[in-house]
Design a binder for these strands. Structure first.
Lengths: 210, 210
DNA sequence: GTCTATAATTTGATAGAC
DNA sequence: GTCTATCAAATTATAGAC
């Protein structure tokens, strides 16, 4: 019959989704190995038995959470690719979207890095099912067009595409170190990242000049 | 009397250091939470009892391993800073050292990211005791001199110093994804990173031009 | 020092009352 | 559905023989 798993039924099941949200916070913070079912029950302010009633096992609960996290990872870069603006503006928009998304979800990067180490295949599988492969091709095509028309220098797209995430995400991975060593608070860090947008955008654009 | 903890006595205690090396491999691979004392015993090909005989507890064993990992993180950037070569060459040397170190120790970055999330204060404390603070000041001084003499544009050193690690380390954090999505093997990945050195060096130098 | 056996604790999972 | 009580398995840690 109707499974309780789909998102469509989730709103009909406030307790279930409430637990899942609590689990998401705990898993994102502590990772799969570090997270305890007890922690999740406390975070959701229910007892452990109920966790198993709704999700059967820690693994299954985690898989559902992972699915949702992956889903949320796909803000529409598509829209930017299709915009009728210059490459420079597109890059600026990419960087802006990246940094703002990271400011909203600062603990996703270390979580992804941890999962990539613990169980890469499962994570990759979930990522692949995001059907976002087409977008990537669109990106490559755009890139090639720009090279052919002489707007940018011929360069490896793999290398180039790595640079925006590298420059944007890395500071968030080092955030616990940065805020302690500077030192600075959450807000100061976010300000630094917003200022950094310009720096990153300029670097990327310069690196593509002929 | 003489404690067995110091490095001086370690060579007199081959079993102990042998266990520690095994523990290092397991902790680096699986992280503190994911590592099992049983895994470590198997890796060292001894039994669990002996682990506690030498290290008392998992926590203590981990702390010793962490200390050694942190120590190994300090290849001498100092020497490069002091070299009598142009800033451009220094940057190229930095990038080269960074990438080659990462190729030799590819699983350190995700380990550090994990620890930075799990217990940042302990990690930072260990890092601070590396007495490497002086070097950092030297780096800042060098940077400021270059700005004053007009060789590079005035820019935030915090931002600038983040860029080399970001561009070098990030691909290693994404390595499990990259080798599966391309796909490529270990050797191909390392080749890509060696080719990337030039790309990164150029980006950094360009970003500093007036 | 090294091993085997076992204790003590933690943790994921289940059973059953309400 | 939700809770309490409990179980079974896993995991860290210790005791004691050799």
């Amino acid at each position: 019959m109707f499974t309780q798993k789909g998102n469509i039924f989730e709103m009909n099941n406030p307790t279930r989704s409430h637990i899942k949200e609590a689990a998401k916070r705990v898993f994102l913070q502590k990772g799969y190995e570090g997270a305890r079912m007890r922690d999740i029950a406390e975070e959701a302010q229910i007892n452990k038995g109920l966790l198993h009633y709704y999700f059967k096992s820690k693994k299954r609960l985690f898989m559902e959470v992972l699915g949702e996290v992956i889903q949320s990872l796909s803000p529409d870069f598509d829209a930017i690719v299709r915009l009728e603006v210059s490459l420079e503006e597109k890059i600026a928009l990419f960087v802006d979207l990246y940094v703002e998304t990271l400011i909203k979800n600062p603990i996703i990067p270390p979580f992804i890095v941890g999962e990539l180490q613990r169980d890469p295949d499962t994570l990759i599988k979930e990522l692949s099912e995001l059907q976002g492969r087409a977008d990537l091709e669109g990106l490559f095509l755009m890139f090639q067009r720009e090279i052919d028309s002489g707007h940018i220098r011929a360069t490896s797209p793999v290398q180039a595409f790595m640079n925006i995430p590298a420059l944007c995400v890395f500071p968030f991975l080092m955030k616990p170190a940065l805020i302690r060593l500077m030192p600075m608070n959450e807000e100061a860090f976010n300000n630094l990242m917003r200022i950094r947008k310009r720096e990153v955008t300029d670097m990327i654009i310069n690196s593509l000049k002929c």
